[in-house]
Structure formats: structure tokens, C-alpha cells
């Protein structure tokens, strides 16, 4: 299921403004890639460009290629809806659909993709997704209650269950723990460790300890200056980035000298 993504010379524009410039990286399957960097350096923009969510902003566009499975995601005939179906996303703040039950939240994507799915298949897939999100034991008795009644950490795991229910190849996480308390954060980090055996995961985080804990590869984004586009400064094994980074700016950032 997990797939490799190769990004080559990616420039991301909002209208005429160049937000991110010249990013090239390879995202390995069944691994966790963390993106770190100071605020406004374009790491979230870059993340959203991987499943074409950034296109929701009017006049946003990219140049360069994002290749998954020998297919350029920005090639002609590629449907953004199909891209998002295969590259799932988890957001900064938990966002279960407030009008849907826990069950319906997880089933939402499945119902879209397969209108004729049988009730028993759906039950099985919902259960599997909730188990995979380490949430099953906590919610199995109240599947028909609204998802908004859960705690923040549970809601976020519900959103992860919703994202993996459609069996994507890649999971993007945009600061998934920034709105959570330390215990919930721990639960999500454990979950990420389990999920990486099956998915390619890209996570944006502000928390360098988190990047060090959960990721195999870390990419550091930075701005050259105010008004300049964000750039990928360096990407390497997480252990190497946090011990002997090859770039001075990376070292300054991870040692807490700025950002």
C-alpha cells in the first residue's frame, strides 16, 4: 500500500507570490518524514501541495513535479479528488463532522467511494480503522454518539481513523498534536509509530522533540529572509539532522538559537 513520493524542483505560488521555492526530496514508503522549520517557512504549504489541498486557495499553483507511483500528481488528467483519496490528511485541530456519529465519521469516505458497500463490510472496515487508530476499545460502545463528544485526543484519533478508512497510500499530518495535551500527544505519537508499518507518513511539526521521537527522516525548511520564499535547507536521517547537521542554519534552529 505505502508508496514513494518524489518531489522535484517544486515551486508553490499564491498568485504571483512565490511561497516555496525549489523543493526536491524523496519520501520513502513505510517511513515517517518530519518537516520542521520556523513559522511561515512554507512547510505546511508544501505539505498541502502533496495532496493538492493548497489549490483551495484561489490562484494557488505549483511548478515542478510530484511523482508517486510513476505518476506526476500535477500531470494532465490527474483528478485532485483522486489524489486526495490516495493521500489522506490529518489537520492541526481535530475536525470530526459535528453532525455525524463516530461511526458515520469513519464511514464517510467509504460511503463516498463505494455507494453499494454492504452493511457488514462497512462495519468491518469501520472497526478495523478504529482499531488501527487505537480508538476501538474507547468508543465501541458509543459508535452512534456524535464525534464531537469525544476528548480532543480521541477526536484527533477519530480523524486519523477517518483518514485511513479509505485505505490511502500516504498520510499527511499537519501539526496533528499542536492542539492536544501531552498525554494525548503521546497516544498519537505511539499511533504514528504503529501506522508507519503500513503507510507512508509525512508530518509537519513545530516540536523538535516530536520530530526526533517519531520520524526516520527530517527535512528542515527555512526562509532566506523576510518576503523571500521558503526553501528546503536540508533533509537527512533524523539521527543525523539532530546530531551532526551539515548546514549551519539547521544546527542553529535545532539547538534553539532561533525560530
Amino acid at each position: 500500500m505505502a508508496k514513494r513520493i518524489e518531489v522535484k524542483d517544486l515551486d508553490i505560488y499564491y498568485d504571483k507570490f512565490l511561497a516555496v521555492q525549489g523543493v526536491s526530496m524523496t519520501i520513502e514508503p513505510r517511513s515517517v518524514t518530519a518537516l520542521i522549520g520556523p513559522s511561515g517557512c512554507g512547510k505546511s504549504t508544501f505539505l498541502r501541495s502533496l495532496n493538492r489541498m493548497h489549490e483551495l486557495v484561489p490562484h494557488a499553483r505549483v511548478e515542478g513535479t510530484v511523482v508517486m507511483d510513476d505518476q506526476d500528481l500535477y500531470g494532465p488528467n490527474v483528478d485532485p479528488v483522486g489524489v486526495r483519496r490516495q493521500i489522506g490528511m490529518v489537520f492541526q485541530r481535530p475536525n470530526p463532522f459535528p453532525t455525524m456519529s463516530i461511526y458515520d465519521n469513519v464511514a464517510a469516505g467509504l460511503r463516498l467511494n463505494n455507494a453499494r458497500i454492504s452493511k457488514s463490510d462497512l462495519d468491518a472496515l469501520v472497526e478495523r480503522s478504529l482499531r488501527a487508530a487505537n480508538l476501538w476499545s474507547e468508543v465501541k460502545d458509543r459508535l452512534n454518539k456524535p464525534g464531537s463528544g469525544l476528548s480532543g485526543g480521541q477526536q484527533q484519533r477519530l480523524c486519523i481513523a477517518r483518514a485511513i478508512a479509505v485505505q490511502p497510500d500516504v498520510l499527511l499530518m499537519d501539526e496533528p498534536c499542536s492542539a492536544l495535551d501531552p498525554i494525548s500527544t503521546q497516544a498519537i505519537e505511539d499511533l504514528i509509530n504503529e501506522l508507519k508499518t503500513e503507510y507512508t507518513i509525512v508530518i509537519v511539526t513545530h516540536n523538535m522533540q516530536q520530530a526526533a521521537r517519531v520520524s526516520d527522516t527530517t527535512g528542515f525548511f527555512n526562509l532566506q529572509g523576510v518576503g523571500q520564499p521558503g526553501q528546503l535547507v536540508e533533509i537527512d536521517d533524523t539521527t543525523k539532522i539532530f546530531s551532526t547537521p551539515s548546514n549551519q542554519a539547521t544546527e542553529d534552529y535545532i539547538s534553539g538559537r532561533f525560530g
Binding site: 495532496n51 479528488v81 486526495r84 490528511m89 459535528p98
Partner: peptide, 15 residues
């Protein structure tokens, strides 16, 4: 409508 809910729907591949 919270933008987050709209994005959640789009992110699981909704038209």
C-alpha cells in the same frame, strides 16, 4: 461553516 470541516471532507476525497 468551519473551513476545517470543509477541508476534512475534501481530504478524504470528496467532490
Amino acid at each position: 461553516t468551519p473551513r476545517l470541516h470543509e477541508e476534512a471532507a475534501l481530504a478524504i476525497g470528496a467532490t
